[in-house]
Design a protein around this nucleic acid. Structure first.
Lengths: 121, 121
DNA sequence: CTAAAGCCTCACGTTGACGTGAGGGTCAAG
DNA sequence: CTTGACCCTCACGTCAACGTGAGGCTTTAG
């Protein structure tokens, strides 16, 4: 599929998709015309990219992670302990951010007057 | 207290503290010398600012919230429904981000090989 | 009295993830 | 065969939350 369709199917802007390629997160084929040609897996890949980006990982960190993900977020390849440690650091950062968000939400809740529900979200 | 001490006690850089003031998040008095003079409450205020910032709120959003927080994150003043709605929107955004982070962490966990623990964090 | 901290106000630099044209090919439809 | 609709590659612009001097007061320690 061409870039416009992928954009519509993922919600990512065309510029963003080209940017992801520039960062090595996506490597579409090229049609004789020079147009980018994405396969179906790209849809899932873009989804993962967006999740990780919104989680605060930068593109270089994602570039390290992506090649290790196959199918649907499966454990894979790379018994490289160096990468493992890097990921553990990222994981810790994410956990910190979750805690910050929960704290922030509590502040908002008290302002809104919402009862301090034990929200499963 | 002067800016250096507040910086040490909050972990925020001096530049950051001045920036918060520039954004209307902090309004220290001034000594005859022109030096900023912060009171004790500023310590807690800065802590709240940092929590909200790390939660992804921008300074203008925080500027709306802060005047409504007194003592320790207490429900207060402003029965203004317009603000309430704005806060509800922010809350929704935060919840979305928490979900994104949890999803991202799950991806990392599968890569690390960590068992998919029901982590209370 | 004299350094050495510490503080002040500009004001430009930085980083990441894109936005936004400029200028120009490609391709199905009428 | 000419519109549009899409696509391409530069390449500069943006926005937030600060970082980083430059140049110059003030206050504290000895």
């Amino acid at each position: 599929m061409k870039i416009g369709e992928l954009s519509r199917r993922t919600g990512a802007s065309i510029r963003a998709l080209r940017y992801y390629e520039e960062q090595g997160l996506l490597s579409p084929e090229r049609l004789p015309s020079g147009y980018r040609d994405y396969d179906e897996r790209s849809v899932a890949t873009v989804a993962r990219i967006r999740v990780l980006l919104s989680a605060g990982l930068n593109s270089t960190a994602i570039a390290e992670i992506l090649p290790n993900v196959v199918d649907d977020s499966v454990v894979l390849t790379g018994r490289c302990p160096e990468l493992r440690d890097g990921l553990a650091v990222e994981r810790a950062r994410i956990t910190e951010r979750i805690e910050a968000l929960v704290a922030a939400r509590a502040i908002l809740d008290s302002l809104i007057g919402r009862p301090l529900v034990i929200d499963p979200a």
